[in-house]
């Protein structure tokens, strides 16, 4: 296509490149800085972007290995970062599997079946999804307190409670999967049902294998959202060894106990895998996110 090009275009292209590069430099400054800080020695030292005396002390501590410096002073790891990361992954995997299973089956019903109140339920799910759980924390706390009196693995200060509570945010995923099901032609399933398959079999053996891509996207989305969930986990979990990363990480930066360097290493260690997963899957994730709502 032949665009009409004004004469000043070359300068504008150059200006755009320069502008974007400068912008990216500013945007990346915090991230590069944290990587650099994680290699500095000490928690208060300042210096340039490239550390002059690189030291691995913060990385030892982040990985849970006591560090002995040249003077022979041994520092113990301040927090169990790897345990927190493991807690986060455990909670996120279990709840993503549950979310995926439950939202797939309901999305199937919403996409393929007719029943009373379908439109109403779908719309109210969309509305209720916007209410932030922070506001009903008192009620959620009371709810899990009560449940915990009778079912101990679902009470306060258990991972079970955090996993179960994350099921409240399924509406978004149901909508995403339903949208995908809607785009798949239903004639295949109808043919199978004519041949004597049950509804469940049509769903399990025909629709599901066709929907693997969206299931992967929803799984990753649910995984990232649960890893980043802060308010509910901060109220439900108490013991240091039960915390998830999102709740535990802030303990590095308390006024009285400011561990800037140790935090930097822990942040890079735990943030990097999540960022890489996100960037790797961005094409699919962005589609799912922009269709459904806002990153949590």
């Amino acid at each position: 296509m032949a665009m009409v090009q004004p004469r000043s275009t070359r300068y504008r292209v150059l200006a755009s490149h320069l502008g974007m590069l400068a912008f990216i430099a500013i945007i990346l400054f915090p991230l590069l800085m944290v990587i650099s800080i994680s290699f500095r020695s000490g928690n208060f030292a300042s210096g340039s972007l490239l550390p002059e005396n690189p030291s691995l002390e913060h990385w030892y501590l982040a990985l849970g290995i006591p560090y002995t410096d040249e003077a022979g002073v041994t520092t113990q790891p301040p927090f169990p970062v790897l345990l927190w990361l493991w807690n986060s992954i455990k909670v996120a995997v279990v709840s993503s599997v549950l979310i995926l299973a439950l939202s797939t089956t309901s999305a199937y019903a919403f996409a393929r079946m007719r029943f009373a109140g379908k439109g109403f339920v779908l719309k109210s799910m969309l509305i209720f999804q916007m209410f932030p759980p922070v506001l009903s924390l008192v009620a959620l706390y009371a709810l899990f307190d009560q449940i915990g009196n009778h079912v101990s693995w679902l009470g306060l200060n258990t991972h079970g409670a955090v996993i179960v509570a994350s099921l409240g945010g399924m509406a978004l995923h149901i909508w995403t999967i339903k949208g995908y099901f809607d785009s798949i032609d239903r004639s295949l399933e109808e043919a199978a049902i004519v041949d004597g398959a049950t509804t469940w079999q049509a769903f399990r053996y025909i629709l599901l294998p066709l929907s693997v891509p969206i299931l992967v996207v929803v799984f990753i989305l649910a995984f990232i959202m649960t890893i980043m969930e802060y308010p509910m986990a901060s109220v439900l979990l108490v013991d240091t060894d039960k915390l998830t990363l999102a709740v535990g990480a802030q303990q590095y930066l308390y006024e009285q106990n400011y561990l800037w360097g140790d935090f930097a290493a822990a942040a890079v260690l735990s943030g990097l895998p999540i960022s890489v997963i996100f960037l790797y899957c961005q094409k699919w994730i962005v589609g799912g996110l922009t269709a459904g709502g806002v990153k949590g």
Partner: peptide
């Protein structure tokens, strides 16, 4: 792509 709870603390 960076988890919000990490970048906010950074």
């Amino acid at each position: 792509a960076v988890p919000a709870f990490i970048s906010i603390l950074v």
